[in-house]
Simulated scan of single mutants.
Amino acid sequence: MHSRHDTLGERVFDVANYLFLTIFACVTVLPFVYIVAGSFTTEAELAARDFFIIPKDYSIAAYQYIFSSSTIFRSIGVSIFITVVGTITNLAFTLTMAYSLSRKDLMGRNTIMNLVIFSMLFSGGMIPTYLVVKELGMIDSYAAVILPGAISAFNLIVIKNFFQNLPPGLEESARIDGCTELGVLWRIVLPLSKPIIATFGLFYAVGHWNNFFSALLYLNDHLKWPLQVVLREMVMLSQLAVGDMSNMDPNFVRPPDQAVKMAVIVVGTVPILMLYPFLQKHFAKGMLLGSIKG
């Protein structure tokens, strides 16, 4: 039996491939490392050094400024609520509709699919969407942030293709045993779909966590603002002391504007990054499962 690497060309290719991927990974990671380092330093160092990954003068003034008000903690709770409820809503609507459209005996299946594809190419736009949300009485409620984007047409098509590729014998056996369509979905299809559920669940969760425009558009009560909107306001109004300066030490020095921006990126990014390790084993597999139609 021949070795897997039995030619010089294959070994050279492997070395070049690993080298390229390492360089690409560094190019991807280093900017974020710089952001983290910059959030823990002073204005003087940020002005003096163009790039660094280890600050010389450590300072947590930017984080003291961000967390100086209880508003930030309330907004984190709001963001977690919107992300969890929104992701569950997205998955529930997308999975049930995708499973229905994957059934070849569904009446009007092609017409519905054409409408789904049409929605990918054309949309009403911001103003008509706002008017619909307003007429439904959802202004200043979390439903306005969650329900208008409850189903992603692209995700729906990918998941539908995945469902169509499942062995039909499993579903037929379940029906012979007395399972209803909902029972087949819950007992057979979903347990086999963990990779794709984890993948698109992560996509939906990241979308909800990073979304600030919908909240800015539909939520008038600042107490209902999620983290991204509050952080945006802190960056825009940092000169006006958005943080509660009265609760801070009298000797507190106002943090540099650039460090505040970097700290805002860290605070807004790290929580959602913590989800990835729990979904990593399913993520790579789920990215490909629904993309190939058998």
Score class of each variant (00 low, 15 high):
Gly9Arg: 08
Glu10Ile: 00
Val12Ser: 02
Val12His: 01
Ala16Met: 08
Ala16Ile: 04
Ala16Tyr: 01
Asn17Phe: 15
Phe20Gln: 11
Leu21Val: 14
Phe24His: 11
Val27Glu: 01
Val27Ala: 13
Thr28His: 10
Leu30Gly: 11
Val33Ala: 15
Tyr34Gln: 13
Ile35His: 07
Ile35Phe: 01
Ala37Tyr: 03
Phe40Val: 05
Thr42Ser: 04
Glu43Pro: 08
Glu45Pro: 00
Glu45Thr: 01
Ala47Ser: 14
Ala47Lys: 14
Asp50Leu: 12
Asp50Ile: 09
Asp50Arg: 13
Phe51Leu: 06
Phe52Asn: 10
Ile53Gln: 03
Ile53Pro: 03
Pro55Glu: 04
Ser59Asn: 05
Ser59Met: 05
Ile60Ser: 11
Ala61Met: 02
Ala62Gln: 02
Ala62Gly: 03
Tyr63Arg: 01
Tyr63Phe: 09
Ser70Val: 10
Ser70Gly: 12
Ser70Glu: 11
Ser70Thr: 11
Phe73Thr: 06
Arg74His: 06
Ser79Trp: 06
Ile80Asp: 03
Ile82Val: 14
Ile82Gln: 01
Phe93Lys: 09
Thr96Asn: 13
Met97Ile: 09
Tyr99Ala: 00
Leu106Tyr: 05
Met107Cys: 09
Met107Ser: 12
Gly108Met: 08
Asn110Phe: 12
Thr111Arg: 10
Ile117Met: 15
Phe118Met: 14
Met120Lys: 11
Leu121Ala: 14
Phe122Asn: 03
Phe122His: 10
Gly124Ile: 09
Gly124Phe: 09
Gly124Thr: 09
Gly125Ser: 08
Gly125Lys: 05
Ile127Val: 13
Tyr130Leu: 15
Val132Cys: 13
Val133Cys: 04
Lys134Val: 08
Gly137Asn: 06
Gly137Ile: 02
Ser141His: 08
Ala144Pro: 02
Pro148Ala: 10
Pro148Gly: 11
Gly149His: 10
Ile151Cys: 05
Ser152Met: 07
Ser152Tyr: 07
Leu156Trp: 00
Ile157Glu: 03
Ile159Phe: 03
Phe163Gly: 00
Gln164Thr: 02
Gln164Ile: 04
Leu166Gly: 06
Leu166Ser: 09
Pro167Trp: 00
Glu171His: 04
Glu171Met: 13
Glu172Arg: 07
Glu172Ser: 07
Ala174Asn: 07
Arg175Ile: 09
Ile176Thr: 08
Ile176Leu: 12
Asp177Val: 03
Asp177Cys: 01
Cys179Lys: 11
Glu181His: 13
Glu181Thr: 12
Trp186Lys: 14
Leu190Trp: 09
Ser193Val: 02
Lys194Trp: 08
Ala198Gln: 04
Phe200Asn: 10
Leu202Met: 08
Leu202Thr: 05
Tyr204Gly: 05
Gly207Gln: 02
Trp209Thr: 02
Asn211Glu: 15
Asn211Arg: 04
Ser214Phe: 15
Leu219Ala: 04
Leu219Gly: 02
Asn220Cys: 12
Asn220Ala: 14
Asn220Val: 13
His222Thr: 14
Leu227Asp: 05
Leu227Cys: 06
Val229Tyr: 00
Val229His: 03
Val235Cys: 04
Ala241Lys: 13
Asp244Thr: 06
Asp244Lys: 06
Ser246Asn: 10
Asp249Ala: 13
Phe252Ser: 04
Arg254Tyr: 12
Pro255His: 07
Pro256Ser: 15
Val267Phe: 10
Gly268Cys: 04
Gly268Arg: 07
Thr269Met: 03
Pro271Asn: 03
Ile272Lys: 00
Leu273Ser: 12
Leu275Pro: 07
Leu275Met: 12
Phe278Gln: 03
Gln280Leu: 13
Phe283Gln: 11
Leu289Tyr: 00
Gly290Met: 01
Gly294Asn: 07
